[in-house]
Amino acid sequence: MHPAPSVIVFTTLSGLGFGLLTFLALGLPALDGWAAFWGYGAGFALAIGGLVSSTFHLGHPERALLAFTQWRTSWLSREAWAAVAALTVTGLHAIGPVFLGARFALLGGLGAALCVITVFTTSMIYASIRAVPRWHQPATPPLYLALSLAGGALLAGQAGAAAVLLAAAGAVQLWAWRAGDAAFARAGTTIGSATGLGGRGAVRAFEPPHTGDNYLLREMVFVVGRRHARKLRAIAFAAMIAGPLVLLALSGGALWASWLGAAVHAGGVAVQRWLFFAEAEHVVGLYYGRRVA
């Protein structure tokens, strides 16, 4: 799949933003006044910045409000609702610590839950696409959730929680890569089943429909860069999991280490998201003989 920069920025930033808002809404840490203002502000900036970035890849962003209508079947529509609900409730909750010096725990708990649900709906947009076997697997939602919460814990300076969540995210990531590598074969779709000719012998794409490229090839049959997938996986894992863990361990969980770790982690997540798209093979590639083993 084509790793569109707008979608990589969107999932990376909004994941971090909703992760941070989750912790702030739970009162971890319990900020007040200006500290709360900047804390919540950072969370909203990341979450909303990501959401705005996601509209850049739309053909008609001016019709984006229509995306709220199909929540009954579409995970993208559910994400729109969840994001608005999460931002509204955490926004209302923020009024307490920022202006009133008060904390409404119930509202905060609801806001935190909505933030987690929003990240879950994002992950389900990908996990529900059966035609991309690497995404259509049980590890996809926990991967998004673990990375979002780990990044949020780092930004919120919750060293203990961050260490546990980073370790969990690392384990889920290894599971996702392992299961993802086997997913295409497990889906059972081959050039034989795609053409229905598999029972007659070995099928080979002889001639493509057109000599030029097309939308399908550009969007769904992205192959550049899979060559360096192993190296990029190592880089992503080192930056988003190992780096922050080492920083936390060496500093004894200091706030500066947590924030520096968050920056390193964000860079790693961006690389991981690039791989999430670039490594994902759509079954339509079979029609073009483009399956890369």
Partner: peptide, 26 residues
């Protein structure tokens, strides 16, 4: 008239039957 050109339907189709028109954005 209500397509936002998000491309998700083209991802969901295993057959590559949908193509986003570059000029119209739908």
């Amino acid at each position: 008239s209500s397509c936002i050109g998000c491309g998700l339907c083209a991802w969901a189709c295993p057959y590559g039957a949908r193509e986003m028109d570059k000029a119209a954005g739908v």
